[in-house]
């Protein structure tokens, strides 16, 4: 293992920010794995730290294939993590909205530029991604459909589901989108936590990444078998919105199969506890997202069901 500083930034009042990369194997740039770009992506950093541990062992036992270099970047924004902020602490900008970056630009553009230069030319890229809403996901993998996408590759992770997402205008400045534009086959891996550590889903993500690496000939390892992945378009996912604001009491968990008409949750009046409404699914399928903040506004996506 070789530990390098990929990018540094001086601060007026704090120790220098160093984005650290862990390199395993040698030769052609096979895979880059990126964890936290935001200050609350603790689970994403944790999954990377688990990958570092695993790859260290694989390297020591000679199980990383020849001519394959793997890079793991656990955290690009620990400045925000250390002070409890999600975005860049000074100006609240999002590093993951600054790619491909600009070396003469603003601070987060420079960070994105410095990092992206070191992430280019890898054949594959995996970002441990998070969602902006508080909630749990069924661990899965996504790809953005940029026209350069071989979505079948997602099956090699062995998650239960893989989703193809159509990019929106604001996606064009994300790491994942730019990786693809620069010809890296890029995936987003979602676990079911962000600002807390969920050991089980971290484990699932690590095994999924290892399955992918094995199938691409990067490592030699007995890996726990995965699912026969079901490949979905976003349109095959039913979003269910709350019709009231109040206290949400959920009745289902991520991964459960539900039939049409099942009560997924109840919204109660926050003061007197009266039932304001039930949230029912109109479709049968697997629950793949559950909103988990106790307070909920009207018209909030609170459940997603894979039909």
């Amino acid at each position: 293992m070789k530990k390098t500083t990929l990018f540094s930034l001086k601060s007026p009042y704090r120790e220098q920010l160093d984005i650290i990369g862990y390199h395993f194997g040698y030769g052609k740039k096979a895979l880059a794995i990126v964890g936290a770009l935001r200050g609350n992506e603790v689970q994403q950093m944790y999954v990377c730290s688990r990958m570092v541990q695993t790859l260290k062992q694989l390297e020591a036992s000679g199980n990383i294939s020849e001519d394959h270099e793997i890079l793991v970047v656990p955290c690009a924004n620990y400045y925000s993590m250390n002070i409890g902020k999600r975005f860049w602490a000074m100006d609240n900008t999002d590093i993951n909205r600054m790619f491909p970056g600009y070396e003469l630009g603003e601070t987060t553009q420079r960070i994105a530029d410095g990092l992206f230069k070191k992430l280019q030319n890898y054949e594959y890229g995996i970002q441990l991604a998070s969602f902006y809403q508080p909630g749990s996901f069924l661990p899965h993998v996504r790809m953005m459909d940029t026209g350069f996408t071989d979505t079948e590759l997602m099956k090699q992770f062995g998650f239960q589901f893989a989703i193809v997402r159509k990019p929106r205008p604001y996606d064009t400045t994300t790491l994942n989108y730019n990786w693809q534009i620069w010809e890296t086959k890029a995936f987003s891996v979602y676990t079911n936590a962000t600002d807390t550590i969920d050991e089980d889903s971290a484990e699932e993500a690590v095994h999924a990444i290892l399955r992918f690496m094995l199938s691409e000939g990067m490592i030699d390892l007995r890996v726990r078998p995965g699912y026969m992945t079901e490949l979905l378009r976003e349109s095959q996912v039913k979003q269910i919105h709350s019709e009231y604001g109040g206290v949400l009491v959920s009745c289902v968990k991520v991964g459960e199969h539900v039939e049409a008409g099942t009560v997924l949750g109840r919204i109660l009046h926050p003061f007197d506890g009266e039932l304001l409404g039930e949230i029912r699914t109109q479709v049968s399928g697997t629950v793949y997202f559950v909103y988990h903040s106790p307070l909920i506004n009207e018209k909030t996506v609170c459940y997603k069901i894979i039909k």
Binding site: G245, G246, P270, F271, L295, I296, N297, E298, K299
Partner: peptide, 11 residues
Amino acid sequence: SAALAVNENLI
């Protein structure tokens, strides 16, 4: 207008 969680609307 949309109902917020606790006794208030976003208007």
